[in-house]
Amino acid sequence: MSTATAPAESTPRTYPSYAHALWRRVLLTREFAVIALLLVVFFYSRGNVPNFDGPLTLYYLFLDIAPILLIALPMTLVIVTGEIDLSVASVMGLSSALLGTLHADAGWSMPMAALAAILAGVLCGAVNGFLVAYVGLPSLAVTIGTLALYRGLAEGLLGTKAITDFPDKWRDWPSNRIFGDGTSYPMILVPFLVLLVLFVWLLHFSTFGRGVYEIGLNDEAAHFTGVNVERTKLLLFVMSGAVSAFAGLYFTLRYGSARGDNASGLELQVIAAVLLGGVSIFGGRGALHGVVAGVVLIGVISSAMRLEGYTVNKINIVIGTLLVLSVMATPAIAWVQRVWARRRLS
């Protein structure tokens, strides 16, 4: 028995798919503004900053921003749902401490210790996700709590000691150059690109991603449409925990040192980059190409300023100002549009 008939019969109304031409939809976006700014800063630095235009600069740039790039991927999805995960850097610390103790003290093989660290990250994310999605607590409060809790566990495991006893093969892997000596691309970019493809598909080309946006815009309507709001949030926090643990492994191997206080404060850098990339802190808006550009932009600015001899304080002032300006950009653009519209009329 067929009930509602397919749309047919007397020629129904048709609509154009888009109100504006393709170039306007692509170029006049927050994301593209970040990409444009990145290109400007990058090419300016290549022309004007001494030593910026060498393979080493880009190589170290990628090594430095790799953990932020990695964690920014799940963080974008978490923030698009209107939640936040402040515990990511503590999960990195915990995974670092676990890798160190399990390998050096307990004698586990590196793969087993790494796997255990990532499973611990999954568990950390699941705890956050359960409290946020199923108990209904605000993620800001929950992850401020677990930020302290996971860091406490990490420092409790290792105390003040650092474990540096890792096999060379493992320690060198993330810093190896993909295309051989003299090139700028470290091996860590490979897992990053794999995850990037995965998260772009998840957010932009899957039914799951549509639900992520809908939860951020209106979680009640999403629930009424059959989106499983709780499960979606839980999964996102689990992804955040797993990727953070992976970033913790990278951090440990790159610096050759497992410490409980590894990557302290990195969560704020991740969130700053995600917001700079055009993701709305209120949820519902943002795209991964903007976020990746935002992370790289911060990296390029720090690296260029460092080469010019600026101190970390000054670099922070510039990046902080940029972030505040970028948050102001959206209302400012709306204001300009209103003024334009008024002028056109009069």
Partner: peptide
Amino acid sequence: RKQGLVIDE
């Protein structure tokens, strides 16, 4: 506006 549709979509 709150349940039927996602108004900003």
